[in-house]
């Protein structure tokens, strides 16, 4: 029970330290002492950082913000697992009761060409924003919308669209894929929009553009190992990738050219 446990853990961390993206980087051993079992993993790092600062050392840099599993900021490898050992859990939601006294824990940033390391455990995931801006939206200007109940959406479609839209853009899928593929992320967006009636008009162009952008960012190809979905904290399913492949095939076959200049 939270707050009752007095158990303190002493842990050996092996942390990837890298000053900047021009730097070489290496593992450094740091002890984490007297960590409460009720602390979250990031609170454990806060505690370690507090002692590094006291000693005049540079604290470990990591991305984080909401600390409740929804903003997608946090994320690194813990003992080789993206976001750590628990299924469907981001690093910030992982609590120290998942570890034992004396454990060694290896912390490493996401490794992918498309996600260059910024510092320590922080990487640059702006490639994801560029994939979204390449068509990951429905083109509707403000103020043009019909009544929201004018177009009923079957509940199963709405639920499935929602499940795909819960992707937090954390990048764990890329980090756990041996090819550093971004198929799960991209297919979650393609699926979210393709499952809704509102998303139909642009579906051909959307999938073609998003996939092209994904490829140009330097993400690898998909060999269907399923490692991405297994690591995904939002448990986005592999069927999303299958759906995107279908959409892509259909789009490639059906692509028609609009007359230039008419549509603004």
């Amino acid at each position: 029970m939270a707050g009752t446990s007095q158990k303190k853990l002493n842990l050996k961390l092996k942390v990837w330290r890298q000053k900047s993206n021009k730097d070489q980087g290496s593992f450094v051993e740091i002890n984490a002492e007297g960590v409460s079992e009720d602390a979250s993993f990031l609170e454990m790092l806060d505690q370690v950082n507090e002692s590094l600062i006291k000693k005049g050392d540079d604290p470990i840099a990591f991305d984080h913000d909401c600390r409740e599993g929804i903003c997608g900021s946090c994320g690194f490898m813990i003992n080789g697992n993206a976001h750590g050992p628990q299924k469907g859990t981001t690093v910030c939601q992982l609590h120290m009761r998942a570890f034992k006294d004396g454990d060694s824990i290896v912390l490493e940033p996401w490794r992918a060409t498309a996600f260059p390391v910024i510092k320590d455990l922080m990487v640059n995931r702006s490639a994801f924003d560029r994939i979204i801006s390449a068509g990951g939206f429905i083109s509707v200007d403000t103020g043009n919308a019909p009544d929201a109940n004018g177009l009923p959406v079957p509940k199963p479609d709405a639920d499935e669209a929602f499940a795909n839209a819960t992707c937090i853009g954390c990048g764990a899928c890329v980090a756990s894929c041996k090819n550093a593929s971004a198929m799960l992320f991209t297919s979650a967006k393609v699926s979210h929009l393709a499952l809704l009636p509102q998303g139909q008009v642009e579906k051909t162009e959307r999938v073609l553009r998003m996939v092209a952008q994904m490829d140009s960012e330097g993400f690898g190809s998909c060999t269907s190992t399923g490692a991405c979905s297994a690591a995904c904290p939002k448990e986005i399913k592999l069927t999303s990738i299958a759906r995107m492949n279908r959409e892509l095939l259909a789009a490639t076959l059906n692509k028609k050219e609009a007359v230039e200049g008419d549509g603004v």
């Binding site: 103020g143 019909p146 929201a148 009923p152 959406v153 669209a161 929602f162 809704l196």
Partner: peptide, 12 residues
């Protein structure tokens, strides 16, 4: 209305 048109998957 705006959000639904953008594809926000509200509960149904």
């Amino acid at each position: 209305d705006q959000c639904v048109a953008q594809g926000v998957p509200f509960a149904r």
